[in-house]
Structures are given as structure tokens and as C-alpha cells.
């Protein structure tokens, strides 16, 4: 029973095993990054960046068709460009970061849609928007694994300034100049992981893999280290369940994964040990001191 439900799809079909590896790589990178995005109140920035990547991937597609390399490089360039431009505008004008980012990502998105609709067919647009987790080839898997490795190593390196920049940016500014470079580096990681997610889940769903596990983890712990671990594990579990569901139900894989994560999120909101609704409604006697 459990075998046919959970193990058989992976044992029998190689494309499912590949999808599993891809989801594993994605979870490792997207989990921690989502936690930091959430804690920095940048939960929607990921969404904006995902849209910003679109024209780059589209231009890559125009230049060399459905090629992994071209679309990846195009997406990365577009994402970095929007991140850096927004960063410069934020630091040199009075505009807040979300406002300047909104400006650039909208321009970028419109450009992307125009490029795709002028040259590509609707099928290609669907590919870019919704990804193909069930058709990951070797190249793509290596790319996903590479991106998650780079993300984890970079996060480990800049962990301290990153946390300081979140908790007390004024203090970090007073003792070091690491603040701005750390921020840019972090946005770079966001772009990198969105590009990874975009191959597997598509530009729109990639953000879900990042944000849903993070906001779910918030209902289970109040400590940042365990929050990162929980988010990563939830991303992985949701990914596997979503894959299995899409296999048995024949539903599209990307949205199935995101919906599974969404379900876990709502359940955590109710049952989560840290501030879940149930625990707040249960009468608990206060402590002596």
C-alpha cells in the first residue's frame, strides 16, 4: 500500500527520480533563503524578482531556443540587473527598496511578455511560466545542485553580517561597511535560486518553494537556526508529497507541489507549536514567575 503510493512511482520511473533529486536540491537552497526573506519583511520581493527574470529568459530563448544555458544566463542577468538597479536607486534616492524594485520588475515583466509573445508560441510561454519538473535532464540537475551548493556555502559565509543586517542595520553600519555588499549578495542568491526554481517549477511557482516553507516554519519555532532547518525539511516533504500527488492524480507537478506546501502552511497555522491557533485557544495556566 505505502509502497505503491510512495515508493513505486520513484522506483518505476526515472523521470520521477530525477524530479526527486531536483526537488531535493531546490529545497536546500530555497529553504534558508526564504527564511531570511521573510524575516527581512521581503516576502513579496521574491515574487517581484521572479517576474524580473522573465525577459532575460525570454531573450535567451530567442537567441538559442529552449536551451538551458542561454535561458539560465539570460534570467540571471535580468535578475541581477533589476536587483542592482533597485539597490542603487534605493541608496541614492529617497525611494524605499520595495518601491524602486516594483518599478524595475514591472518594466522587466512587460518586456518579457512582449518578447515571448512576439517570437515564441504559447507552449513556450507555459514552459517558462510553469516549468517542467518532470522533464529535468542531467544538465539541469547539475545546474540545480550547483546553485544550491553555492547558496549554502555563501549563506554560511555571510551568515553573521546577514543576521546583523536584519536585526540591527544601524549597528552594522556603525561598525562595518559589510552591510550593503551583504545585501546585494543576498539578493544575488535570491535571483540564483529563483532561476533554479524556474527550470523546475516555472517563474511563478519558484517563489512558492521559497516562501511557503519559511512562513510555515514560523509557526513551529522562534529560533532562527531551527527555523532554517524546519523550512528546508518542509520544502522537501512538500516537494515529495506534491510529486507523488501529481503522479497519481495526473495534475501538473509544479502547482501540486505548491498546493501541498500551502496545505502544510494552513495546517501549521492551526496546529503549529509556536503561536498556532489551537494553542492560543487552549486555556493554559500562566507560570509562577
Amino acid at each position: 500500500m505505502i509502497y505503491t503510493l510512495l515508493i513505486a512511482p520513484f522506483a518505476e520511473f526515472e523521470f520521477m527520480r530525477r524530479a526527486l533529486v531536483g526537488i531535493f536540491a531546490l529545497s536546500l537552497g530555497a529553504g534558508p533563503i526564504g527564511v531570511f526573506l521573510m524575516l527581512r519583511r521581503m516576502s513579496l520581493i521574491g515574487d517581484a524578482m521572479a517576474h524580473a527574470i522573465l525577459p532575460g529568459a525570454a531573450i535567451g530563448y530567442l537567441v538559442s531556443g529552449l536551451s538551458l544555458g542561454a535561458m539560465t544566463i539570460g534570467g540571471l542577468l535580468a535578475g541581477f540587473m533589476v536587483a542592482v538597479l533597485a539597490g542603487i536607486v534605493t541608496r541614492t534616492t529617497r525611494l524605499a527598496e520595495d518601491a524602486s524594485l516594483a518599478g524595475f520588475y514591472l518594466i522587466s515583466l512587460a518586456l518579457g511578455v512582449i518578447i515571448i509573445s512576439m517570437k515564441g508560441s504559447n507552449v513556450d510561454l507555459l514552459h517558462v511560466l510553469f516549468g517542467t519538473v518532470l522533464a529535468l535532464d542531467n544538465q539541469t540537475l547539475v545546474l540545480l545542485a550547483g546553485i544550491s551548493s553555492i547558496s549554502l556555502l555563501t549563506l554560511a559565509t555571510v551568515y553573521r553580517p546577514l543576521v546583523m543586517e536584519c536585526v540591527d542595520p544601524g549597528f552594522l553600519r556603525s561598525v562595518s561597511r559589510a552591510g550593503a555588499p551583504t545585501h546585494i549578495l543576498f539578493l544575488g542568491l535570491v535571483v540564483l535560486n529563483l532561476v533554479a526554481g524556474f527550470h523546475a517549477l516555472g517563474t511563478l511557482m519558484a517563489v512558492g518553494m521559497m516562501m511557503l516553507p519559511a512562513i510555515t516554519a514560523h509557526f513551529w519555532t522562534r529560533d532562527i537556526t531551527s527555523m532554517i532547518i524546519i523550512a528546508t525539511v518542509i520544502a522537501l516533504i512538500g516537494g515529495i508529497i506534491g510529486l507523488v500527488l501529481s503522479y497519481h492524480l495526473g495534475s501538473p507537478s509544479g502547482p501540486s507541489i505548491i498546493l501541498t506546501l500551502g496545505t502544510i502552511y494552513i495546517l501549521s497555522m492551526i496546529f503549529g507549536r509556536s503561536n498556532g491557533y489551537i494553542w492560543r485557544l487552549l486555556p493554559q495556566k500562566h507560570l509562577h514567575g
Partner: peptide
């Protein structure tokens, strides 16, 4: 001080920033 009080970090970790 523009400290994010909602950030999940302990008093010990906040104080230890002084060792930067």
C-alpha cells in the same frame, strides 16, 4: 535603535554583536 524586535534572536546573540 532600529532593532527588529520580532527577529528570532536571543539576548546573548544580540549582545555578542559587540564582539564584531
Amino acid at each position: 535603535a532600529d532593532i527588529d524586535l520580532k527577529f528570532p534572536i536571543s539576548v546573548y546573540d544580540l549582545v555578542s554583536m559587540g564582539c564584531w
